[in-house]
Write a protein that binds this DNA or RNA. Structure first.
Lengths: 168, 168
DNA sequence: TCCGGAAGGATTGATATCCTAATATCTGTC
DNA sequence: GACAGATATTAGGATATCAATCCTTCCGGA
């Protein structure tokens, strides 16, 4: 004997039931999965922003800084960063603008191609990237609240989705 | 005998290797999972935006419209929508602003609480929501490019993550 | 060889969205 | 009747995208 209003108050499951009720069964699970992805991203991004706030960084700028710190010379052409991080050229420009004004990155002319610009990480930038990574590791990446097994399922499934979308 | 640069060109796996190389093993899988979520959201949101463009809707506005079409009276207080869709009050205000200017929703005074405002879907709004859902179902939700089993794994794991974050 | 157009790289400006903070109004309770 | 809390909005800052622009490089044909 169940009550009309189920105890399950997950809004995504509720939406899925609505989908089935309206005859959209073949899309219901996909809808629920997509909505879950969107919501999960909101959750993790909010945690990331909170962890990064003391360092005056957004996730986009953090990614750029960390990418640069991983390279041999500490510098990359703007376009190459956009390609690696999958962001638009204009976003790279504005993010580097801000990083430059913060003294974490500087723009250098490309040695051989006068069209291109190198973004180069400064010593301050390296230190900031390290400290921010420590915060993210401790406050976000090690605290997802799901099991190691689930984390690996997530990686595997989303890797398939990304591959299918032509990401790599 | 392997070459220095592995054939696996997935940037997220590459980042994970860097994490391990630097001694952040305990955070490496979580980092990869989080980055995968962020990237997967970019991918599906881009597809959603493409599918919704002919209807002059963003995903946020589509969600509001569909939520309203699911209610008995076709109307809800602003705050209630924000709570159900997990978006900030200001986002609800601006989204309803736009929906109202498009003639898809109208603002009505709350019958008993003069503080509150009801957003009410119009007939045009209902028709738009239906057409947009058909497009999303066919072009996105049924075309994720992963197996039904993987879709359900995704739902389950992300449900755990959301529950753990206090979502429901 | 040279020259002219196609393509690449980066930026700017315009637009839309989201978030934070502050504000105005209203409700309900002590 | 005063005051804490709820509801919605406005204003401002940050970010992402799109289109257009400027400069540079590349390449094929005269």
């Amino acid at each position: 004997m169940t009550i009309g209003r189920t105890l399950d108050s997950d809004p995504i499951e509720e939406a899925r039931r609505q989908w089935i009720e309206r005859g959209w069964e073949s899309a219901a699970d996909g809808m629920a999965a997509v909505t879950s992805i969107v919501r999960a991203q909101q959750i993790v991004l909010q945690r990331i922003d909170t962890a990064l706030r003391p360092f005056d960084l957004t996730f986009a700028r953090y990614e750029i800084l960390t990418l640069l710190s991983f390279t041999k010379r500490g510098s990359l052409p703007m376009t190459r960063m956009g390609a690696l991080l999958q962001v638009h050229p204009t976003s790279v420009t504005s993010a580097v603008d801000r990083l430059e004004s913060q003294g974490l990155v500087e723009r250098l002319p490309h040695p051989t191609d006068r069209r291109a610009v190198l973004a180069s990480i400064t010593d301050t930038g390296r230190a900031r990237a390290l400290a921010a990574t420590a915060a993210l590791n401790g406050q976000v990446f090690e605290q997802l609240g799901i099991t190691e097994h689930q984390i690996n399922q997530l990686r595997t499934v989303l890797r398939a989705l990304r591959a299918n979308a032509g990401d790599f």
